[in-house]
Design a protein around this nucleic acid. Structure first.
Length: 583
RNA sequence: GGUCCCGUAGCUCAGUUGGAUAGAGCAUCAGAUUCCUAAUCUGAGGGUCGCAGGUUCAAUUCCUGCCGGGAUCACCA
């Protein structure tokens, strides 16, 4: 069953076109791929519009309006099309019967139909990697947008029929983890009663490491002090990473973000770097690795630049700007070498598409990642990097000051605790991710129609309010999906038309990997619903609950049910609650 | 200097992968609202889509070059 009526009617239009038996000028088969059916920009044009005539006209060497006439004639017998007219340069505008809209509403209002779900993904295996914050402390507000965008995109893709895995890459190997371990070592000493003074420069000064030190002191007492330092640090490292990941998982849960897989970078280095070695062997076999020198960077030469021969990935062969080092001067693998092994691991797990949600400051990594995918998968994996622009935090219009050195950074938890999970999630997605975003604490908690979060959630609450009103005034009255034919008002049908856009929005947003479209759609739908409601203030006939007409009330409850179902499904994808009431 | 992102109404932003007269919210202005279901409602004005070329039936959308704003730029992670 195709729920996207736009693609359903597209099929009908294409059938109609092909039934005309038109001959192309060059004798090639008629190309209909560019034929589309969309909601017209102006509602007065009709319910659906197609560009079919204009696409076909050139191929057959005829005037577009003339082709349009033929298409209109071919559609004459279609029972769902009440009217087909030609407009502008050759658009065919269709008006759809109320009966058709009402069968759609029946689907929308049925909570078991899964209205809006799509099969467009074809159960393709997609890996969405997002957040992947270093396990060296709690998440700060900078991670917030990527977390929401990644999580929402993953939800959206799953809803659109993809087989999605949400993944987090734990950077638990490397210098910053050693710094973490040394910082915790000091906190451990402190917990044992040693004076540590102020944290030395370069270590993590945050208080969040204090309980980690205390837990170690409780478990090991002073045993770690008598060990050689590197052995003690190894023990501490494990405990510290576990503690930080626990912290981060809590933060993510507060944002309603839940990953399926947490992948540890350290597992790639285990066994003397076996996984990395075999990944590099794979790259070497495919002819992408060589020993050579890198040209010095342009512009100002770094102080410690050393011109040396090294093991390089010839990424320039596959679209990168510069070849990438795989082995450091001390003989250990570079971060990128581990990335290679990680990519190979994902590849072997069968993902056909990999999405990385990163902050805009990681723009420089895009090309090497794409190059990696091309080299390893030989073009069979589609890798996309979604760059999220930065978030500017505001309080009553004034920028919030943050100083990393002074340890004064706003944590993700601070923001969620202050404004709530729903406003954070909604506002982080209520903007194209390639666009910078202003986040004003005051505005996102405002209880007014000027606040989109409130406006959309309020639509959900209002739906429930109608059910409560109906129960109060007409006890026992339920939505009746078999008497939807009682819905005849243009304003009601218009609302159904808006609902009918949902499956299309899901599909286009999923394909474009632009989850913000869904948030904007939900706002528009709420706008239509509130608008219809407001008509009831002037015209009592349009109110949902009609005490003297239980049948009509039941039909209208069906409409409300449809609105509520779509709002719920949409908000669910956004990870935002659809409240029953707002007080 | 290289690369990537952005430039649309006074402000904040959408714009359905190339379609018709470019939209919404805020702000501004003009009306309505003693009745009503729940956090007022209706309407109006406001634009060289950064600039200049190109591709075509059709460009805010795709291509090229400029202008302006942001991010980033060896081995670190």
């Amino acid at each position: 069953m195709v729920m996207n009526i736009f693609s359903a009617f597209r099929d009908r239009i294409v059938d109609a076109v092909e039934s005309l038996g038109l001959e192309t000028r060059d004798g090639n088969p008629l190309q209909t791929a560019k034929v589309n059916v969309e909601p017209p920009r102006d509602a007065s044009h009709g319910d659906l519009a197609t560009n079919a005539a204009m696409v076909i006209a050139k191929q057959v060497g005829e005037n577009p309006r003339h082709v349009a006439e033929k298409i209109v004639a071919a559609l004459e017998n279609n029972p769902d099309i009440v009217e087909a007219t030609i407009a502008g340069p050759g658009f065919v505008n269709l008006r759809i019967s109320n009966a058709f809209w009402l069968t759609q509403l029946k689907l929308m209002a049925d909570p078991h139909s899964g209205y809006g779900r799509s099969t467009i993904g074809g159960q393709k295996k997609v890996n969405v990697e997002y957040v992947s914050a270093n396990p060296t402390g709690p998440m700060h507000v900078g991670h917030c947008r990527g977390a929401v965008v990644g999580d929402t995109l993953a939800n959206l893709l799953a809803f659109a029929g993809y087989d999605v895995t949400k993944e987090y890459y734990i950077n638990d190997a490397g210098a910053q983890i050693d710094v973490l371990a040394r910082s915790v070592y000091l906190r451990y000493k402190q917990a044992l009663g040693h004076a540590i003074g102020t944290m030395p420069e370069g270590l993590y000064p945050g208080d969040y490491l204090v309980p980690v030190g205390e837990a170690l002191a409780e478990k090991h007492e002073d045993a770690l002090l008598s060990m050689p330092e590197d052995e003690a640090l190894a023990v501490i490292k494990d405990a510290a990473v576990d503690a930080m990941m626990a912290l981060i998982r809590d933060d993510l849960a507060a944002l309603n973000v839940h990953h399926d897989v947490f992948f540890s970078e350290r597992t790639l280095h285990e066994g003397n770097g076996g996984k990395i070695q075999s990944a590099l062997n794979d790259l070497t076999m495919k002819g992408h690795v060589y020993k050579g020198k890198l040209p010095p960077p342009k512009g100002q030469l770094p102080d410690d630049w050393e011109d040396r021969e090294q093991t390089l990935f010839r990424s320039t062969d596959v679209g990168d700007d510069i070849d990438r080092p795989l082995v450091k001067s001390d003989g250990t693998y570079t971060y990128f070498a581990a990335d290679t092994a990680y990519f190979v691991d994902k590849f072997e797990r069968g993902f056909k598409e990999m999405i990385f949600v990163l902050g805009a400051d990681h723009g420089g990594y895009v090309k090497r990642m794409e190059a990696l995918a091309k080299a390893v998968s030989e073009g069979s994996v589609q890798l996309t990097v979604l760059l999220c622009q930065l978030v500017k935090l505001l309080r009553d219009g004034e920028p919030v000051k943050m100083s990393k050195r002074a340890g004064q950074f706003v944590t993700l938890r601070d923001v969620v605790d202050e404004v709530g999970r729903d406003p954070v999630r909604f506002m982080m997605i209520y903007r194209k991710s390639s666009e910078p975003l202003d986040f004003d604490f005051a505005k996102v908690t405002e209880q007014s129609k000027d606040n989109p979060v409130f406006y959309v959630q309020y639509a959900s609450a209002r739906c429930h309010s109608v059910f409560r009103q109906a129960e109060e005034q007409l006890p026992g009255t339920k939505a009746d999906l078999d008497r939807l034919d009682l819905l005849v008002d243009e304003s009601e049908i218009a609302l159904i038309r808006k609902l009918a856009e949902f499956p299309r929005v899901v599909e286009t947003a999923a394909v474009a990997q632009e989850p913000h479209r869904l948030a904007f759609y939900l706002y528009e739908l709420s706008n239509s619903f509130h608008g219809h409601w407001n008509k009831g203030t002037d015209n009592e006939q349009l109110r949902f609950v009609k005490v003297n007409n239980p049948q009509l009330t039941s039909a209208r409850l069906g409409l409300v049910q449809g609105v509520l179902n779509v709002l719920r499904s949409g908000l669910d994808i956004l990870g935002v609650a659809a409240p029953a009431e707002m007080r």
